[in-house]
């Protein structure tokens, strides 16, 4: 028990130090702009189909499940507003972030871990490049900027899924549906929800990079790094979400 606590604290200390190094080096030239763009494209493009399918199913299922309850109270017309609010404020950011934790964070951890094991990171250092800048900073910045975009994309697809779900039982035009959605939404719903996705993205990239970059030698450590990246990133997403909800309710 004591050993587990000590190891947990040591890992947390390592992670804080790693995050500190990120902030120390992120603004210091040279900038790896090309690699950052490549990572943005890779992270965004590779996750797009998965996020689209999940977003669509979230919107569709939420509409179908909520409809009978609202219908019982004669409040069926609130359905577009309710579904869009639920999606934008909570469901879409958290589910998209969890999917990205599973796909991107583990991918980064496995990639950097195998680079470490096969001495590619050492080779980079000997080549005069700063591997931390080239591998870690570019990936963390890419996830920080791409996760919010993926969440916005999932919101849109989810809302469209909700429209199709609603149309299964009652006819409503897309224009009317969208008008009802925007009636229900305000900036205080969209802004806090979008801001927290930057934090989700930052931690997804940071945890994946930390687990991969600090993997010990041996191929087994690559698998361990990938698995522990998913677990840690998923957990931190829920913690950030809880804190963000508390903060938003205090401020509004």
């Amino acid at each position: 028990m004591f050993i587990q606590i000590r190891s947990g604290l040591s890992n947390a200390g390592d992670f804080i130090q790693f995050t500190g190094r990120f902030f120390k080096e992120v603004l210091r030239p040279p900038y790896e702009f090309k690699e950052f763009i490549r990572q943005c494209f890779s992270i965004g493009n590779r996750s797009l189909p998965l996020v689209a399918i999940t977003g669509f199913i979230m919107g569709l299922v939420l509409t179908i499940q909520t409809r009978p309850t609202l219908a019982a109270f004669g409040a069926e017309s609130w359905l577009p507003g309710m579904v869009s609010l639920s999606l934008i404020r909570e469901i879409s950011p958290v589910i998209t972030a969890l999917i990205c934790a599973g796909k991107i964070s583990s991918g980064i951890a496995a990639e950097l871990g195998s680079m470490k094991v096969t001495e590619q990171i050492d080779a980079m250092e000997v080549s005069g490049a700063d591997p931390f800048k080239y591998l870690v900073i570019t990936r963390v910045l890419a996830t920080t900027f791409m996760i919010p975009l993926l969440v916005v994309f999932a919101d849109c697809i989810g809302i469209y899924g909700g429209y199709l779900g609603m149309n299964m039982q009652s006819g409503i035009t897309l224009f009317r549906y969208v008008a009802k959605v925007f009636e229900a939404l305000s900036f205080s719903d969209i802004i806090p929800a979008t801001l927290k996705t930057f934090l989700f993205g930052f931690f997804i990239g940071m945890i994946g990079s930390h687990k991969g970059y600090t993997a010990s030698s041996g191929t087994e450590s690559v698998g361990k790094a990938a698995t522990s990246a998913v677990v840690a990133a998923s957990l931190i997403i829920f913690i950030i979400d809880m804190m963000a909800v508390q903060l938003t309710s205090l401020l509004t």
Binding site: E111, M115, T118, E119, D122, A123, V126, S127
Partner: peptide
């Protein structure tokens, strides 16, 4: 390091880059 070369045991070629990019990497740095 500009005057020092290192051949790693596992070659340590960058997996995500072509041969051309692997060779270009240290030159550009």
């Amino acid at each position: 390091r500009i005057r020092l070369g290192f051949l790693f045991q596992n070659s340590a070629l960058y997996d995500s880059m072509t041969v051309r990019e692997n060779l270009k990497f240290p030159l550009k740095r």
